[in-house]
C-alpha cells in the first residue's frame, strides 16, 4: 500500500506523517508540491506546517500548487486524502471541505494533548474507531478556529459530515466544537489536531497507564490501509 506524503515549502510534519504511515504498515511515497505526478499512490496525506509561510491565508497558496490540481481531481474520484492542521487548511482552501479556519479566538498559539470525540466512522481514515470513542492526540495551532455560515453548518450537522469534535476543552473557538470534517463520500478527512504525533509508545500523549504511551493517532493510518486492502 503506497501512501503519498506531500511536502510544500514550509511543511513541518511530513517526516512524522511518513513515520506514522510506516508504523501502520504502509509504504511512503514522497510527493513534492511542484510535481503534479501522484506516482500511483493509494492515498495521500497533507501534513502540518506553515506552507508558503501561510502568506495570504493559511493553506491558500499551497492550494494552488501543481500537486494540488492532481490531488483535487483524484479526491473527487475517490482517492483517500487526509489533511492534518495546515493540510486541513489546504483542503478547505481547495474547496474539498467547506468553511474556513481563522486565528484562535483566544489569540494564543495552543499546544496541548487534546481529547476528541470520534463523530463519524464511515470514512477511509476513521473506520478503525468506534462511534463516539474518545481519543487523545496532540493539537498545536494558532489559526484553528473553524467557521462556516449557518447553511453550511446545518448541512454538516444534518448530513453527518463532522468527523471529530473537541472534548472537554474547545481550544480555539471552533463553532460547534468542530475539530475535523469528512466529505460526503468519506474519502477526504481534515482535522486540526495531529494524529501523526500519537503513533508510537514513548512519544505520544500521556495516558492513565503510562507517560507518553498514547497511540490513538495510529488508527487513522491503519484505517486507510484496511480500506485500501478491502476495496
Amino acid at each position: 500500500m503506497k501512501i503519498g506524503v506531500v511536502t510544500f515549502p514550509g511543511t513541518l510534519d511530513d517526516r512524522d506523517a511518513a513515520r506514522a504511515v510506516r508504523l501502520a504498515g504502509g509504504e511512503v511515497v514522497k510527493l513534492w508540491h511542484a510535481d503534479a505526478d501522484l506516482h500511483i499512490v493509494d492515498a495521500v496525506v497533507l501534513p502540518g506546517g506553515f506552507s508558503f509561510g501561510d502568506y495570504l491565508r493559511c493553506g491558500a497558496i499551497a492550494a494552488q500548487a501543481p500537486v494540488m490540481e492532481s490531488i483535487i481531481d483524484a479526491a473527487n474520484g475517490g482517492l483517500p486524502v487526509l489533511g492534518i492542521c495546515n493540510g486541513f487548511q489546504v483542503l478547505v482552501e481547495s474547496h474539498l471541505l467547506p468553511g474556513g479556519l481563522i486565528r484562535n479566538e483566544n489569540q494564543h498559539f495552543i499546544c496541548r494533548d487534546q481529547k476528541l470525540i470520534v463523530e463519524n466512522v464511515d470514512t477511509a481514515w476513521t473506520n478503525g474507531f468506534k462511534l463516539g470513542q474518545e481519543i487523545t492526540i496532540p493539537l498545536k495551532n494558532g489559526e484553528g478556529g473553524y467557521i462556516a455560515d449557518e447553511e453550511t453548518l446545518k448541512s454538516l450537522e444534518g448530513d453527518g459530515l463532522i468527523a471529530f469534535r473537541y472534548s472537554e476543552v474547545n481550544p480555539n473557538g471552533s463553532v460547534n466544537d468542530i475539530a475535523g470534517l469528512r466529505n460526503e463520500r468519506g474519502n477526504v478527512v481534515g482535522l486540526m489536531p495531529h494524529p501523526e504525533h500519537a503513533v508510537e509508545p514513548g512519544f505520544g500523549p500521556d495516558t492513565p497507564l503510562a507517560m507518553r504511551s498514547g497511540v490513538d493517532g495510529l488508527t487513522f493510518f491503519t484505517s486507510v490501509l484496511n480500506q485500501v486492502v478491502n476495496s
Binding site: L56, E93, G99, G100, I102, I147, A148
Partner: peptide, 9 residues
C-alpha cells in the same frame, strides 16, 4: 477566487 476567502473575508 484567490486573494480572499468568501467564508471569512
Amino acid at each position: 477566487d484567490f486573494l480572499s476567502n468568501g467564508v471569512i473575508e
